[in-house]
Design a protein around this nucleic acid. Structure first.
Lengths: 140, 140
DNA sequence: ATTTTAATTGCAAAGCCTTGCAATCACCCC
DNA sequence: GGGGTGATTGCAAGGCTTTGCAATTAAAAT
């Protein structure tokens, strides 16, 4: 429960209220092993706290994302997935044929980031990129 | 109207039917100067052909995208935008502060594509990437 | 030209996410 | 500890997109 307090501290420092709803959403994200969706968070929290509304989940996720505390990734499947930012950034290759997801180290985008910075003075926020394509096995 | 026939030929070659609905959606995409959204296509087509249903627009776009004939890009703003693939690929930098969109040449991702191919034997389909971040003017 | 057949469409419902608004509540101050 | 205040929530409605299904229709077969 130490990680949770880190994020709680950041929220509190920045003047955001620590509501039970936020705490429970946070808990669900922090305790999730994989990338978790809004509906999964909702389903999990509601077991102990049936009064929660799903729009609160979405608003909490939007806040945490805006503050850089969680990353948002669209791995396909029509729903966005979330991950605590302090659990390490990484990227994903998603095979459009077989659905396989390959995890990549964050460093694969280092060169791209440098070029964008150098040539456009643009600072990209590429912390959790999903790239679609065809994996080795599906290449005929 | 030459471009349209190119795509029509490809559809027909691959055994897809050439329905009036598809033709009109195609026309709207081909004649659009900028990246166009599904609703914009719908609004445009319906002026001449009021019977069209918007789900047909979405299904046509999904088909054209699957066949690689149009690109799909999420530039933010909660709706996806489409562009004919043969009008040239390019990428976009979207500033999260001011909303400004900077167009990039396709070549900025060449290095990344090579690395993914070399290290993972993965062939990414990066034809129209949107990257979010902070532009030069918004950097304080 | 007619028939056949599977692809495509329209419709209605649903899915994921966002938003406006009034009611509630966390936190600051005394 | 109790009151004031603005942030936050729940609710309901809406926006964009997808999907199941029966009816229609393009194109192949006759």
């Amino acid at each position: 429960m130490k990680k949770t307090s880190d994020i709680i501290n950041k929220l509190s420092e920045q003047g955001y209220r620590l509501t039970p709803q936020r705490m429970m959403v946070l808990d669900a994200i922090e305790n999730s092993e994989h990338h978790i969706s809004a509906e999964e968070i909702y389903a999990q929290v509601i077991m102990e706290y049936p009064h929660l509304n799903i729009s609160t989940v979405y608003r909490t996720l939007e806040l945490l994302h805006r503050l850089g505390l969680v990353t948002e990734t669209d791995l396909g499947g029509g729903r966005v997935r979330y991950h605590p930012a302090d659990k390490g950034h990484h990227h994903h290759l998603v095979c459009q044929e077989c659905g396989r997801v390959i995890d990549l180290d964050e460093s694969v985008t280092d060169n791209l980031k440098q070029v964008l910075k150098r040539d456009y003075n643009f600072t990209p926020d590429i912390r959790h990129l999903a790239l679609f394509g065809t994996c080795a096995d599906c290449k005929r």
